[in-house]
Structure formats: C-alpha cells, structure tokens
Design a protein around this nucleic acid. Structure first.
Lengths: 354, 354
DNA sequence: TTGTATGCGTTATCAC
DNA sequence: GTGATAACGCATACAA
C-alpha cells in the first residue's frame, strides 16, 4: 500500500515526454518531430513513421497548452448556462458536445446559477482560458451586458442561445417563441376554451416577452378580450405555478384553461392543484406547458406542451460557429440569427373535442 | 452592417493586452506586473495598486494558457460520462462544477456515448489538455482499462465514480449499491410480496453486479428461494423493461413484484405494461426502480425508488480531489474509496400494507 | 526535406 | 522591492 502511494507520487511529478525527448532519441531536430506529429507534408515519410513509432513507445502526449499558446487558439468552446442539470440545458450541451467533438473541439462548462454575478465570473474565467468561442444562455437576473461586450472585445466569437440579449449584435440561436406560443394558444381556443390564463416568466428575458406576445396575438386573432386578471407574473417554477393556480381558480370568474408559458414544471404545479381541488382536466380546465420535459408524457392526464428540439439546438449552435470560422475570410456573411421553430405537442390535458 | 462585420474582423485579430503592455505603460518590468497581478507580497503596495488600475483600464485578461504552461498545471478537471443529458450524470456534473468553481477550477466535459472507443478518445484528449484531474464513469461496454492506466501514467489524478473498474487502484466515489438493493428488496418482502423478479443491467459493470448481490442477499435473509426464471438480464431501458415485464407476467407463475435494479426508466416500462395489462399496482404487482428520477414522484401510482444523492456525489468527487491535493506532501493517506449510502424512497408502487 | 532560431505570455530564479 | 533573464512545450519562418 505504502509502495503504491509512493509510486503515484513519483508518477505525479514525472516529467512527460516532449518532442525534444523524441528528437534526442532519434537524433533529429525537434522541429522535424513537430512536423511529423502534425502530419505536415514537408517531412520524409520514413522519418514520419519513425517519429510516430517512437512517440507511441514513449507514450508521448502533445501538450495542448503549449501548442495552443503557440498557435494562438485553444480549440475550446466555453459554455455558460444557468444550470447544467436542467433538462433543456443539458440537452443543448449534449448537442454542442456532439458537434464539437467531431471537429476536435473541447467544451468548458460553467453554470451561472441564474445569478448575473456568477455569470460575470464565469465569462471572465472563460476569457482567461482563451476559449475560441463562448456560448451563453443568460441568467434570469441578467440585466446589463458589459461582460458580453467584453467577450467580443477580446476577440472571442460570442454566440447566444435561447435566452438572448436582443440588443447585442451577436450570432444567436433561438426558438421562435412567439410563433410557438401563438400556435399553442390558438389550439387551446380551437378546443373551445374561453377564458385562457397566462403564467408568464421574468419579462427582462426576451423569451418570456415573446411568449406573451404570442399569447396576445392568438387572443387578437380570435377576437378574444385580454383579461389582466388572468395574466400572472413570474410563475415559472412548480411552486409558483401552483400558487398562481390557486389564485386563478378562486376568482369569481376562473379561467377554463391555463397556459404555463414558462415551463412544464409550472404546468405540473397547475395540474396538481387542479386535481387536488377536484377540477377535471381537460374537461373543466385545459393545461399547456412549455419545453416537453420527459414527465409531461407520463402525468395523468398527459400534458400538452411545446418541444424546443434542444439537442438539435445545441448542434446548431456549434455548427454555426464552425460555419462562421470557415467563412471568416470570405465575403459571404453568415446569418446573424437562426430561429428554430418549436413544435406543439398536443396531449390529453387540452383535448376537449375529438 | 458591413461596418459591423469589418469591426468584428478587426477585433478578432486584435492582439490582447499582455503584462508587457502594462509594464511598458508604467515603465516598470514585466516581472513586477506579474507579481502585482498574482498578488505576491514581494511588491510595493503602491505599484500593486497602480498595476491593478491600469490592468483594468487596458482590459487586461491573463492568458491562462501561458500561465498554466509555465506553472505546469491547468487548474482544470476533465469529466467523462456516458451521456451529459442523463439526469444522474448531469446532477453529478452540477455538483462537481459547484465545488470546483469555488476552488477556481474549470471543467472540461466529454461524453462517451456508452462507447469504449469514444471513451478512449475522450480520455486521450483530456490528457492532451493537461487536466489536473480526470473524473470518469465508465461506458457500458468498457472492458479493458489501459486508457485509464494511461491517465495515471501521465501523472494525472484519476477518480472514478459510480461505474468504476474495481481492479484499478484509484480514488473512487460509489454508491453502496448492494446495501441499497438489500434494503429495497427487504422492504418489498416485508410488504408481503412473495415472488420478486429482478431486472438486471450489464454485468460487466460492477454496479449492476452489486445490485444483484443485494437482491440475492435479501432473498437469503428471508429464506426465500432464488428463481432463475424471475431474473431478467439486460433490461435497463424503458423498452427493455417493458419487454421483460411482458415476458414475466405471462409466466405460468408470474411475479408479484418487480425490482428494476437498473433504472427508473426500466421501472416506468414495467408500470406502463402492467397498467396496460389491467394489473393493479401495487396490490397485484409491486414495482421498485432505481435513481429517483423526477418523474417517479409524478406517475400514478408513484414509484418506489432509490435516491443516489447525485449532486452530493459530484461535490464529493471534487472535494476528494482537493483533499488529495492538500495532502499530497503529507503522510496521511486519503481513503481510496468513498461510499455514499443511497436512500430508499418508499412510494405508492410498493405499499401493500398500511 | 531538415535544422536553426525565435516567440507565444507567463512565472520563477536570480541578482541588485 | 525591483529588473533582467530563462524556461514551460510547441510551431513556424527562414536558412541550408
């Protein structure tokens, strides 16, 4: 046991083999080794093979720190999201990872915990790390965006997704939230619901504003009045959704449908309160969520929701960056904004006819 | 618009400010700037303040590539998991991130997609990136572990979690799967179930072997026979769980309880098939899953399961590394293996009495 | 095709 | 306390 510890200690401080070690062993110049290792075509095939062979023997691993420092790039993409372990974000990250991996890029991941203060620190860390590209979805309380401007000023490609700062001219990948919202509420109206409540999220985030716009547009389209008492601010967690529902259902004229535009968690809160109050879903109350979380399929009744194609969104983000890179010397200008059309998934919780 | 493009182009190639720029502006040596920036106590307070001030003015960001190259460390932890967007893993990662962030460490994340071939590539990439520590949970088809030995040989601290290679002497953070399994099956037996089936996972992964051991131990403890026909191999997805359930429930003597030791998804498959076949849960069939996925609380009936404290597990992993670092010169030896005791969460799907 | 020399941006080791 | 200088490991311009 003791020996093992000593052994690891030794290994830990062991110098790794470098191109100089290989060069020395082969009696050639380090530059030749470097060329062979980077598969340059200015090397003799024979020496290339020899280098590769001894590199393997000596268990050589390139030091990317040095390589990247020299090349002035890091082949690394930084990602900042509110929480890594939220379905939507972990899916987007999985998508980014998949696309990046194919191109030989690595991901450095940070979570802002929905706090602008931490978001700023994360962004600065990633700038320090010399990431080539920084991908971010803003924290809920993110108000000013100096730290993002800072990213651009440091020559780092900035890509925003989902929760974006509209006024910043960067590459963006977003959902067409307004359209999705419009479709969802239209569907609800077509199912014969008359008084449709809206649970809205923090309006400083564009996405929630857009979803509200879609809601209003749908009401307008069908000549239905906008009733302020049916619009509840900041109901974007399960608990807040539940609380809002209790309030709504106790109104003199309660709603007959609730669109939890913020999230499926909020919709779940709605469902649980409704069932607890003995209100039948969907016959007496229609419910629609947002995000297509896995559980919406499992609840009874299952919950109508909107799928955001999150993994695809991640791939799109990464590929947007690579496309931009390919294009950086060309004259063609990549589209600044890619909008992904979400899909309404109609389930039992809003099916009143048919 | 054109101007904007040109502007970004310019910014992209702009040289960042370095310590030399600050030194030049202040007419002092770069080394002094470095000292001031790293808050050394061998610098005059006045110059330190001056340096910090102009650094802020010039929007200086330290180049960690250079810094880390020089210091021979990267302040970076590499993480390899089968899938980033699986609840358990994303929670562990969130935990690692939280603890690492506090210590000023960054995370580089890769997913193996349950493929040893990709796992090997990920590991090599992380070695190249000079991560200080590599955290891994093995891919399902991971059989030999040369690539992990390679990590150790390169002087990188290796920590395995959850799905570990038992024979490799590394730091490990695991769940006490056997104990948890034993408790779960004991609970099922105490509820009066007599024929308890087991859905097991790939036995080349230790964790599934341990869960089976716990199952067998519980049967032994209560003097119940082990019935081979009730043990189904490789039923670790929702679909495979469903398939296994159809087979089991069509036996001449079907089970009256199913322990989906592999995952809650598998348990969900069991539940859906049972309900579709008109079998009452829990009165006619008891069901227990594994992992405490969010949805287990929501199904009807809710599913009994085992909580693995995944976020806590992540924090433990990170802190184990930091503790090991603090200790590396000391004589004290950190525990090689940390075992976290999972918690049985009894829900409706196994409540037959009381 | 190969070798020499230099620099990427820091930090550490010397002197002073 | 400060400055000059070397070194971390690699990639490339240039010379041979």
């Amino acid at each position: 046991m003791i020996y093992f510890i000593i052994f690891t200690k030794y290994m830990k401080t062991k110098k790794r083999t470098t191109i100089y070690d290989i060069a020395e062993k082969l009696n050639i110049a380090a530059s030749s080794v470097s060329r062979a290792l980077s598969n340059s075509n200015h090397v003799n095939e024979a020496t290339k093979k020899l280098v590769l062979k001894t590199a393997a023997e000596l268990n050589y691993k390139r030091n990317n720190l040095a390589s990247n420092l020299r090349k002035g790039q890091s082949k690394t993409i930084g990602v900042v999201v509110p929480f890594i372990n939220q379905n939507f974000f972990s899916n987007v990250i999985a998508g980014i990872e998949e696309a990046s991996y194919k191109k030989g890029y690595n991901l450095i991941i940070c979570q802002s915990n929905e706090l602008q203060s931490k978001e700023i620190k994360c962004v600065n860390t990633l700038i320090n790390q010399h990431v080539d590209c920084l991908v971010i979805s803003l924290a809920a309380d993110s108000s000013d965006h100096k730290h993002l401007q800072n990213v651009i000023d440091n020559g780092i490609q900035l890509i925003q997704f989902d929760r974006v700062a509209g006024e910043l001219e960067t590459l963006k990948v977003i959902n067409d939230n307004e359209q999705a919202s419009l479709e969802a509420v239209s569907h609800i109206i077509e199912q014969g619901y008359k008084r449709i409540a809206l649970l809205e999220g923090p309006q400083n985030l564009d996405i929630f504003g857009q979803r509200k716009k879609g809601y209003l547009a749908a009401l307008g389209k069908y000549n239905m009045p906008v009733l302020d008492e049916l619009i509840i601010e900041n109901a974007w967690t399960k608990d807040l959704g539940a609380e809002a529902t209790r309030k709504l259902l106790n109104l003199a004229e309660p709603p007959d449908a609730i669109f939890a535009s913020t999230s499926d968690f909020s919709a779940l809160g709605v469902l649980e309160v409704a069932l607890a109050m003995g209100i039948k879903v969907p016959s007496e109350l229609g419910i629609c969520g947002y995000s297509n979380e896995a559980f919406t399929e499992i609840t009874s009744p299952s919950i109508t929701t909107i799928d955001q194609f999150s993994v695809y969104m991640g791939k799109t983000v990464a590929n947007l960056y690579f496309q931009e890179m390919d294009n950086k010397d060309g004259t063609e200008v990549a589209p600044q904004i890619i909008s992904i059309k979400p899909k309404l998934i109609v389930r039992t919780s809003t099916k009143r006819n048919g």
